[in-house]
Design a protein around this nucleic acid. Structure first.
Lengths: 129, 129
DNA sequence: ATAGGTGCAAAACTTTTGCGTCAAG
DNA sequence: CTTGACGCAAAAGTTTTGCACCTAT
């Protein structure tokens, strides 16, 4: 018989996780988001947050980032954009595409470039001193 | 009294770690490198490898990357270059600057861009099929 | 001789997973 | 009803650290 893609259910937990993630522009870690979501759903488990973030990233509803230091961060906005880290405070900012000059496409022998993910670094207003 | 920067000693372990890392272009994880170094220094500990990689990255002798999935990878080459990941096999390649068109510098209100780190994605020769 | 580095083992974290139960569709 | 998702807790995996001893300088 034909493989059917498993259906996906919109549970309270999933929608609260998504809702809270979308309110933030801080690119929280799973654990940070867990602590926020817990205020609305005190009995939710960290495992559920991980599972849902993974699921949402898989279905391209959210973005999963691997930036700077050790930890995976999540981004509620799935529009393509780049990121910038402040070298002083470490905060992560979004760089909308309209601020971008153009995406570079290097000619690399033996490799076909299809896309790029750019992490800029620099200083944000508060830290430029 | 004036703070003196702690001196740094070239131990056998440190030089073997650096030597092996420089032989590779695979951007190994700490653990992978540990297993390679262990062939020459069977009694070395994983903690020592972590400590040294951290130290070498700190002193800008090597590069510490955070790419793709969960894990930190290290790069023995400290010349500035970008990286590319194959969407199929996941291998990480170096993109030398001479292959680069030009580095984009977006005009972002409230943020001064000083540099960029670009991760390209695409397909390597073996995987393009 | 001094103090930075090492090996070992334990601890701290982050992330994943097995299982019995619950609930969305 | 069916089965995807949940909560819980245990496990797995990665990275850090305390401590006593060693060794580069």
């Amino acid at each position: 018989m034909a493989q059917t893609a498993p259906q996906t259910r919109m549970t309270v937990q999933r929608s609260v996780i998504l809702d809270e993630l979308r309110k933030l522009n801080t690119h929280p870690t799973a654990d940070e988001l867990y602590n926020i979501v817990r205020k609305r759903l005190p009995r939710i488990s960290l495992g559920t947050v991980y599972r849902n973030l993974e699921h949402l990233a898989q279905s391209e509803t959210i973005l999963k980032l691997n930036i700077g230091e050790n930890i995976k961060r999540f981004d509620g906005c799935c529009d393509k954009h780049h990121h910038a880290t402040c070298l002083v405070c470490g905060r992560i900012y979004d760089i909308p595409l309209e601020d971008m000059p153009e995406e570079p496409r290097p000619k690399v022998p033996g490799f076909t470039v299809t896309g790029a993910n750019i992490f800029f670094e620099g200083y944000c207003t508060g830290c430029r001193s």
